[in-house]
């Protein structure tokens, strides 16, 4: 997983729980002297370990934690890459351009070989159907990102998750309803 994701988690934990908690988390899950840098890749297990501890500390389920993290992640990324986000006029437009535009940009900056594939289609005026596929199965984080995106565009949305890789499906289906 790319360092940029860890950096976001670091910021979130320190802002909400303080430096001590973050230090304890690092000590528990990471090699000594671990420093996260955006463009480097780090083992996925580190993120899973950190996220598990966070969910325990917050007394939240893993899906809920990942959702919350995803929501925060959107703002974090948008703040760093304003020019990319500014290209999109609406929430809808951004969501359907994830694979073509956003992941394209990620590839340029971070050369991430394990990006999820996202197929987003406008179902009707108020609904987008999004298919998520990734061996990392971070569909809840994706959900969070979509919520974060809606927040950015001042939209209220609802996401249904009728098919999920965690229930043995080979892909997740997210039905996004927006006003």
């Amino acid at each position: 997983m790319k360092g940029i994701i860890f950096r976001c988690l670091e910021e979130l934990v320190i802002n909400t729980k303080g430096m001590d908690v973050w230090e304890q988390l690092l000590e528990k899950h990471c090699p000594e002297d671990r420093v996260y840098v955006s463009a480097r890749s780090y083992p996925d297990e580190e993120l899973v370990g950190l996220a598990t501890s966070v969910s325990q500390a917050l007394n939240l389920s893993m899906p809920e934690t990942l959702k919350a993290f995803g929501t925060y992640l959107f703002g974090f990324l948008a703040k760093r890459h304003t020019s990319i986000v500014e290209e999109f006029k609406s929430f809808e437009q951004l969501i359907i351009s994830i694979d073509d535009v956003i992941h394209q940009e990620v590839q340029k900056l971070y050369e991430e070989p394990n990006l999820p594939t996202i197929e987003a289609k406008i179902y009707d005026e108020h609904t987008i159907h999004l298919v998520y596929r990734s061996p990392r199965k971070l569909c809840f984080c994706a959900e969070g990102l979509i919520y974060g995106c809606a927040e950015h565009f001042n939209k209220t949305i609802k996401i249904e998750h009728p098919l999920c890789m965690h229930n043995g499906e080979k892909e997740c289906l997210l039905k996004i309803t927006h006003s």
């Binding site: 950096r7 840098v37 955006s38 340029k108 900056l109």
Partner: peptide, 17 residues
Amino acid sequence: ARDEVELLLEEKTSKLY
């Protein structure tokens, strides 16, 4: 400082790209 350096790096990377 780290943020800034990372941003700088990203800027350069994208130019390089």
